[in-house]
Design a binder for these strands. Structure first.
Lengths: 149, 149
DNA sequence: TTAGGTGCAAAAGCTTTGCAATGCT
DNA sequence: AGCATTGCAAAGCTTTTGCACCTAA
């Protein structure tokens, strides 16, 4: 479970300083939950609580949080990097169904891939630390609309 | 099978014109084969054969080829979009093992995911048209090196 | 002929960086 | 005090666009 205090401690342990800017950033991070946020969106949230904070600070903080393994970069081809909070405790990844019509991203919890992973590690001599599955298609809202196309 | 003539025909059928620039671009595309090429790399290849061609022409041609479904955009987080030739005939996707140490990308042919796809289509009410699996980890060259880290 | 294509240079957008001032620890 | 951090502005990157000129069909 990632709460603010844990993150703050981890920052100090890394030799990073805990500034008001970072505190606010972490706060907003928590409110964003499991969403796929862009740096811009994070920045907007932070600015609401403290208009003084600069964009580059957010970028730098995001970099640190990524190095710490607290957030992961995702790419949904919408022009900017997106991140999401990692679930540190469980090695339980989720996948994304991406609607090519409306762009909606549906999350899917399913560890179907464990068998595949084992096979890869054996056959390919590759040590797996993470994986990412994106499935493109039409969501239920868009399927009907598109049908006659 | 995608040969140059097929692509040329498809271009004309779409109402696009077949210019020398596009011919060279397609030529180079063939030599790049199944590699994951960036627009810059494609541009370099084209420039060797015809130094007059401008970068924006390559970008525009790549856009058209993508719309035509002949190439697909991939993202390996190295700063720019990468593309690869599609295999039109077979619905036979391949996946990527990405080494987080040296950046090497290993391709993997395996249609393990068909069962998963069926389940998604049923459970999630989602019509799948494509998928993309990226597996991050250490390749055989880097595993030993990293071991003692 | 004429609609689409081309090259160049400029613009766009996201992201990074240099630097002087600031502030955790 | 010492060194990481900050905010700003400028720079860096890839990618897109405007425009006048060209060219395939």
């Amino acid at each position: 479970m990632n709460n603010e205090n844990q993150i703050v401690d981890a920052l100090r342990k890394r030799g990073n300083k805990v500034t008001p800017q970072r505190l606010v950033t972490i706060e907003v991070l928590m409110t964003l939950g499991q969403q796929h946020f862009s740096v811009e969106e994070l920045f907007q949230g932070v600015k609401q609580r403290n208009p003084e904070v600069g964009m580059s600070t957010i970028y730098r903080t995001v970099q640190i949080l990524e190095e710490m393994g607290l957030i992961t970069k995702r790419n949904f081809d919408d022009g900017f990097a997106r991140y999401e909070l990692c679930e540190l405790d469980e090695k339980h990844w989720h996948h994304h169904l991406i609607c090519v019509k409306c762009g909606k991203v549906i999350e899917m919890q399913d560890d179907f891939l464990e068998a595949l992973e084992k096979e890869i590690e054996e056959k390919k001599d590759f040590i797996i630390i993470n994986h990412e599955l994106k499935v493109y298609g039409y969501c239920s809202d868009c399927y009907g609309i598109t049908k006659g196309e």
